[in-house]
Design a protein around this nucleic acid. Structure first.
Lengths: 228, 228
DNA sequence: TTGCTCCTCACGTCACGTGAGGTGGC
DNA sequence: TTGCTCCTCACGTCACGTGAGGTGGC
């Protein structure tokens, strides 16, 4: 159909009563829908696409007394939990793949895109590979800059982000500054220096934050290292 | 048990044959395990904790001919896909919560922490709030810098990241450069200029990428705007 | 008359969790 | 003898997808 729903899905929605055919042929059993049922069908499709359970889809579209926003927020929380769980599993699984045994925990949250400018791509590539286990694939991209490496940490895509933070510092305006969670802060800190990082300060505890060290990469980008 | 496994799970693993009791009392049916079965039990627990299917757990621990690393990498890919899916769903659901209707698509993947240095925190705060709908809460953090705003987009935590990219550009080394997906690229571009952004180039199509515009924020940070 | 579509059951999915009803061991 | 533990089925989970077997419509 134009609705995007499959026939088994339409039958199922008939069975559970959230989308009844406008008319059913008594002889053949054929289900017929009217064009004005399309919005409802598409709404169901949209809500199911974000995995809202059918019972809640029913409430969302038929029960005028339910708190729609609250229902969606509750579902949002479930999805967020699931997302965190899967991210965790990825981290743990990566540990298995590298070694073959058990591994620790990590935290995380936020998202954007980040470009880091460096003086020498090969130096930078080696730096990020050595220190953070990033894996880069060389590409000549026709974006705003001629050539660059696209890279990931761990391995594939998807991991955890922290926060976008804005701080006031006239001298450093326009300077890239980002952070990594480390399984072993001391070790990563040492490795980073060995790989050519500029030392800012070694691991220390600050109230209300994970244990942190500060370095600059060989091109001068500020990097915070956080104990996971 | 010390294994961390529940009794129903132990029974299930007996049924499916991945962890047989060392001995079963014929009269009572009681299952007894030996201490040397613990490593195996814990391995199963660990692999199940990352959602490796039982059939593959069996292969992983009993089939010497299987490519263990390949099996785990294949599973990693499934988890990564799932993670991407759920992240997507969160973005879409956030759209529903704000409005109540259907919403577009976005892409995404990677994670870190990002600090952006600016000349004036209040100007920057207004800029990011106006243009990207970020919400900031003022904090005086005792991190490497005296005061800053911590902010999020959309709503809660968790969204989509793109990639860490390294490009070679001596002149721009050390400069922050990041991007946003926009529901309506033209509109966001216009809003950004109105909010004080420096124009680099307006929306245009480049092969192999989403439609993109380039601006600088009031402090000179490079920002790419991408059509979602 | 030959395809093609849609129909109606009914089973399968995946790994356990949860009773119901019953029984040895301290 | 009273609890407590573990046992054995067997059903429930969640939203459809997938046959098996059969039948109207062009």
């Amino acid at each position: 159909m134009l609705s995007g729903l499959t026939i088994p899905a339409l039958r199922h929605y008939d069975d559970v009563g959230i989308l009844l055919p406008a008319q059913v042929d008594r002889r053949t059993g054929y289900r017929y829908y009217r064009r004005d049922q399309l919005p409802r069908a598409q709404l169901i499709l949209a809500l199911r696409a974000v995995d809202l359970p059918i019972d809640e889809v029913r409430d969302a579209i038929d029960a005028p007394e339910v708190d729609l926003r609250g229902l969606l927020l509750a579902h949002r929380e479930r999805l967020a939990d699931q997302s965190a769980r899967v991210s965790q599993q990825l981290v743990v699984l990566d540990g298995f793949i590298e070694k073959g045994v058990i591994v620790p925990k990590v935290t995380g949250s936020r998202i954007v895109m980040l470009n880091v400018a460096v003086h020498d791509a090969d130096v930078a590539r080696r730096f990020y590979e050595d220190v953070f286990g990033a894996s880069f694939n060389e590409t000549t991209h026709d974006g705003p800059h001629d050539s660059h490496y696209e890279g990931t940490f761990g391995t594939w895509p998807t991991e955890n982000f922290f926060l976008l933070q804005i701080f006031e510092d006239v001298d450093r305006a326009g300077t890239a500054n980002f952070g990594f969670f480390c399984e072993d802060l001391e070790e990563t800190y040492r490795e980073s220096l060995a790989a050519g990082a500029i030392d800012v300060h070694g691991p220390k505890d600050v109230p209300g934050m994970p244990r942190v060290a500060q370095i600059k990469d060989p091109s001068g980008n500020d990097i915070g290292l956080y104990q996971a």
